[in-house]
Design a binder for these strands. Structure first.
Lengths: 331, 331
DNA sequence: TTGTATGCGTTATCAA
DNA sequence: TTGATAACGCATACAA
């Protein structure tokens, strides 16, 4: 690999001059500029990024820490984040904690130790005090990590409200909700809060099933079967994500209940992937692209030591497919 | 951020000694070792990775270049690759070319320029001679890039054979196949070859629809509708991937054809995501995890300048769901 | 307009 | 068993 010095020698100038040409700094005569470019081309020279990183004490690397990528929501989120960051000139180091606190801690150690300039986290596990150590700029997505870390989320309360209200308006009364474990500090809990409030306002009894994050689809199916056993009168289910909704639809099918005739179903997330695969699923759509966009913007502010809010809420909307209503919806 | 020198000062030894303790090299008295560890702890010292990279001329970074992550196959592949690489002590830089040659070239420039120690590529665009420049170790997955780059793929011919043969055995005769553009040098073309050979052997007429990679789901649906218009007698479709299969199923439904009663359907890929979402889909399962594993193993060999084969073929199997046969399959 | 010398944080060589 | 020093490749302050 040729280095600055080789170019300098070939162009018969000093390293400094080459560096200047490279970074377009200071005064330079057109003649030398051309000489240097010529030499760089001859040698197929490319600046050594690592050396630059050492000098600038910056890596231009952003770490992304997500619980999983198997869930389409996080898959799409990670994709969008990566795209946005790339456009801003950053490279991305991705870590999937797989909902494993140990694995998350490992990744974090790896990333923190001066490898990344900033961090975007969407992991569940809290208590990671290391986050705000070392002045490392951090932004959280959809997760509350820490007091002084800005959180980007969509309006989960509004999403839960929209979904539940929509079901209530369909005239059904036995509406069940599935959600994550209640001991987790995630904004997604507000979907449940909204669900319960809407239910109570309508004089209905809220019933929430809590599902652990790291259980297999098979185990989930078993829990969903239990819903129908324990609540045979169930008329509608508001699932906390689309994959669960689809699993529920299958389980319902097995048990002889057709959606939406015998069971109304509303999911959550509205990823492109699911909407391509199952466009008829009624679901609350999170603005994933905008969330990623905003996360990157806020991270930039942090990187430039600008002040930021502590929370950002993005609007959601209800995608009315066919699973949430017995009435024929307009096409 | 504390550096080696700070630790040295606090422990009252030289930088060299601290470095020795850090890397367990050379002779050291127990007393100094403990002194140094104590100092490192005091300062919460972590070695500067970038400085190490500069000295060693190695980044421990592997680039992954994939055409898209929206397709579950590549999504799962990228996830598995990342997991395997992480376990081997590598960090991963991911680039999604989005099937855009320009974007791929950009990513490549970024990655090649001495930022990554190796590359795993699964992109479509060939003619990228830069790949084998600079001795950079490269491994290709599911794509033929270049003579001297090892290719990891599953047995696409066998997969196409399994799918087509299975459909032929169902007694149907009008079997249509969808595949990517024929001018692309991908192993996936062998699915088509196998399809055509099996059809001809059975005295049936092969019909293949070619779909561009970067067209929208909506456009794809239109093409699929055309299949039913142009071939009203179609009894079965062997799609080149699962998402297409699912889109076809939807289009068929719209047109009043039920799967499998009025149309047999076999997909390709068998990702966990799709099998969770739609377990009844009959499909050819690619061993994604094993492919990732092997890719990383071969890359390691290349990194250590060991010889490698030029091609590696992994076995596939047919997942018999319910969409590929009118007969009731055993549960 | 261009060049010299120094430092970024680490590791290795050689000497003590 | 330990320490001084050079080197990795680049970019800047300062000098010319």
């Amino acid at each position: 690999m040729p280095k600055l010095e080789d170019v300098a020698k070939l162009a018969q100038v000093s390293k400094t001059t080459v560096s200047r040409v490279l970074n377009r700094r200071g005064y330079l005569s057109q003649a030398t500029i051309e000489k240097v470019y010529w030499a760089m081309e001859q040698l197929d020279y490319h600046p050594n990024v690592v050396a630059r990183q050492l000098y600038n004490n910056k890596t231009n690397l952003i770490g992304i820490l997500l619980p999983t990528v198997a869930d389409p929501f996080f898959g799409e989120l990670s994709f969008e984040l990566e795209r946005q960051l790339y456009e801003q000139g950053f490279k991305v180091l991705i870590g999937n904690s797989m909902n494993d606190p140990q694995k998350e801690a490992n990744y974090l150690d790896q990333l923190l130790i001066k490898q990344v300039d900033g961090l975007i986290v969407g992991t569940h596990n809290q208590g990671l005090k290391q986050y705000h150590r070392q002045q490392l700029p951090v932004v959280a997505i959809d997760r509350i990590v820490n007091e002084d870390i800005p959180v980007i989320a969509s309006d989960n309360y509004r999403g839960g409200w929209l979904a539940t209200e929509y079901l209530v308006q369909q005239g059904v009364t036995h509406i069940i909700h599935t959600n994550g474990p209640h001991d987790l500090a995630t904004p997604a809990k507000q979907r449940r809060t909204a669900y319960e409030e809407v239910m109570q306002k309508a004089n209905l009894t809220p019933v929430t099933y809590e599902l652990d994050f790291n259980i297999s689809p098979t185990q989930k199916q078993q829990i969903f079967r239990r819903i129908f056993v324990e609540h045979p009168k169930v008329e509608a289910i508001f699932a906390s994500n689309d994959t669960d909704a689809i699993l529920i639809q299958q389980v319902a099918g097995e048990l002889g209940r057709k959606v939406p005739a015998d069971l109304l179903l509303v999911g959550y997330d509205g990823t492109k992937m699911i909407r391509n695969l199952d466009p008829q699923l009624t679901t609350v759509v999170q603005p994933i692209e905008k969330m990623a966009q905003l996360a990157v913007k806020i991270l930039q502010q942090r990187l430039h030591k600008q002040a930021t809010e502590t929370q950002y809420l993005l609007p959601v909307k209800l995608h009315q497919g066919q699973t949430g209503s017995k009435l024929k919806t307009r096409d």
